[in-house]
């Protein structure tokens, strides 16, 4: 009973979080947390469910941000339409890139996505006419809700983003209880066995990859219309690494893990601000340490404890 109610309670707390404080600074941090959580959840589809490492995910985030910003500023389309377009643009790139690179898997795939991410980063930096180069784009219009007006306050914007996060988190949860989701895990766990059960490994991976890039694109759009300033640095190696840190440190292959990872990232970023460059060293140490000592992320710390009470679980077999 408690276990059934827990997710609902957590979702409710998350949804009403900004009501607990008057501080606009904290509201701002919360919005950032949710934006990163959405992004980390989408990357988790690739890393956690499909079992492939993608270093190009920040590029799709950036593509979405730029697509949405440019569309609203140059053509004047409403922001909600631009957000959908942002998802589509990122998904289109995701399809092409996935189609090319998913034929190879493992480390080669990871490096290829890194290469693609770098191309997009480079082009964004140099295509001045469209992207204004390294200067970035500013004065991006905010999200406007009909009848309410522009969402200028961080607290108001939080509700938009948290709705997206909760919807996508639920979608991921539902995915794992569907045939498609089982195919994702099968492909991750054992591709030849998956194929022997009728699962088209390549198409399954492509499907998951494209879905993840669509969501990353939407997250990028949401980011652009919130901060109202974007630069190509969104797609830099720093960001790519940060995303992977969130998913891995939080716990890949779970819904809670990436949200937790995003929280840790955002909070540490703020708390360590005083340390200057040292904070990046702390991050790196955090990544290295957690990968080596907690390979399945922070959420895995809580699980063995729960399982130990279960007599049906046998000790790990000797290798």
């Amino acid at each position: 009973m408690i276990r059934k109610a827990l997710p609902f309670a957590a979702a409710l707390v998350l949804a009403l979080l900004p009501l607990g404080t008057q501080s606009t600074y904290l509201h701002h941090v919360m919005v950032l947390w949710m934006l990163y959580a959405l992004l980390a959840l989408s990357l988790n589809v690739i890393i956690g469910y499909l079992g492939e490492l993608s270093f190009g995910h920040a590029a799709f985030f950036g593509l979405g941000a730029y697509a949405s910003a440019i569309l609203t500023m140059q053509t004047g389309v409403p922001v909600w339409l631009a957000l959908i377009a942002a998802g589509l643009v990122a998904g289109l790139f995701g399809f092409v890139i996935g189609y090319v690179s998913l034929r190879i898997v493992g480390p080669q795939f990871a490096i290829l996505t890194l290469g693609f991410g770098s191309i997009i980063y480079t082009v964004t930096n140099y295509w001045d006419d469209l992207t204004r180069g390294p200067m970035g784009i500013n004065n991006i219009p905010p999200v406007t809700v009909p009848g309410v007006g522009p969402l200028g306050e961080a607290r108001d914007y939080y509700f938009v983003v948290v709705a997206c996060v909760l919807a996508f988190a639920y979608a991921c949860h539902a995915l794992m209880r569907s045939r498609t989701g089982r195919a994702f895990l099968a492909v991750r766990e054992n591709a030849p066995l998956a194929a022997s059960l009728g699962i088209d490994v390549f198409r399954t991976k492509l499907l998951g990859f494209v879905a993840a890039t669509v969501v990353a694109g939407i997250a990028g759009g949401l980011y652009a219309h919130y901060l109202r300033v974007i630069t190509p640095e969104l797609m830099s190696l720093q960001y790519m690494a940060a995303l992977i840190i969130m998913v891995v440190v939080g716990g890949r292959g779970t819904v809670v893990g990436p949200i937790l990872g995003a929280l840790i990232y955002v909070v540490l970023l703020e708390v360590l601000r005083a340390f200057g460059p040292l904070r990046l060293i702390v991050f790196a140490a955090l990544l290295t340490g957690s990968v080596i000592f907690v390979p399945h992320g922070l959420v895995s710390l809580w699980r063995p404890w729960r399982r130990r009470a279960d007599p049906a679980i046998r000790p790990e077999p000797a290798p």
Binding site: A171, L175, S178, T180, L185, E189, L193, L197, I199
Partner: peptide, 30 residues
């Protein structure tokens, strides 16, 4: 050759891919 990180039951559930199982949308809307 099994799916090592899944339980025995989930291994078998996964194997019904060919014949059964509603897709993601059906599971989202239950």
């Amino acid at each position: 050759s099994v799916f090592p990180m899944l339980t025995t039951r989930d291994n078998i559930r996964t194997a019904t891919y060919r014949t059964r199982g509603a897709g993601w949308l059906a599971s989202t809307f239950r």
